[in-house]
Design a protein around this nucleic acid. Structure first.
Length: 265
DNA sequence: GTTGAGCGTT
């Protein structure tokens, strides 16, 4: 303390974890260190993976292309990842594509770190930052972009993230028979329109990741047996709801999703 | 077996 505060002088450019920096020498990654993922910035907000795959695929086989988007709004965030099979292709693509125009925008292509967070981790951040003490925000302050859903967006009554009508009041009326139609209850929060992109005829029309139907549809009502009327009924329902996918970020903070006892027994 | 709520978004 003596006056001299530690001033973190921010390095120029993205000098985040220099882990994979090419270093002042050569600038060539070692083979083992060569990243295969490219981060493409300045994408159009409505850019699709295919749009990237095509131009980027010219340099080599692309393993995967992913454009992260806001979980709540579902909008693209303006950047994406292109992962190659061969690091050499990635380097080539980076060199070639960096600065290229895609849809009228100059792309910025850089190597991406493999810091990819898993969904589970993302949820943790909303929960309170993790009990570990802070390791949150080690990257940048996301607060600026605020991943949280704008409370007052359009309609006051309905938070935009809020599902349309999920009112299971007490019991489900028989007229709410809208289930059993789409079992696509995945982790998709706001059902974004599914674009039918008939591009690969050879590809089976099954969801790319779809095979993992995890389960339980949040179907409100119980399957068959009539629920005995008991005072705990409300509680029962309440619990049922807990199983449902995240509704509000705040809910996370409310408490961990408790698992019901195994119904198997 | 993987991960799709992925870091460098006005």
């Amino acid at each position: 303390m003596r006056g001299r505060s530690y001033t973190p002088s921010p390095p120029r450019g993205y000098g985040r974890r220099g882990g994979r920096s090419p270093g002042p020498r050569g600038g060539r990654y070692g083979r083992a260190d060569a990243p295969t993922s490219l981060l493409v910035r300045n994408l159009r907000l409505d850019c699709r993976p295919e749009d990237l795959k095509r131009p980027f695929g010219q340099f080599g086989p692309v393993k995967d292309v992913y454009l992260p988007r806001d979980y709540y709004t579902g909008d693209a965030r303006g950047f994406g990842f292109v992962q190659y099979v061969d690091p050499a292709d990635a380097a080539e693509a980076k060199y070639q594509m960096d600065g290229q125009l895609l849809h009228g925008r100059e792309l910025t292509v850089v190597f991406a770190e493999e810091n990819r967070k898993k969904p589970t981790e993302m949820r943790a951040r909303e929960r309170g930052g993790g009990s570990r003490g802070g390791s949150y925000d080690r990257r940048r302050s996301p607060s600026r972009y605020s991943r949280s859903p704008p409370r007052n967006s359009q309609s006051r009554g309905r938070n935009y993230y809020s599902p349309p009508k999920r009112r299971y009041s007490r019991s489900i009326s028989p007229n709410e028979k809208r289930y059993s139609r789409e079992r696509s209850y995945s982790r998709s929060p706001p059902a974004r329109e599914h674009k039918h992109h008939s591009g690969s005829p050879v590809r089976v029309e099954r969801s790319p990741y779809g095979s993992r139907s995890r389960s339980q549809s949040p179907g409100p009502v119980g399957p068959g047996p009539v629920r005995a009327r008991s005072p705990v009924r409300a509680r029962s329902i309440s619990r049922s709801r807990s199983r449902s996918p995240p509704h509000h970020p705040a809910e996370y903070a409310r408490g961990p999703p408790r698992r019901d006892r195994s119904p198997s027994q």
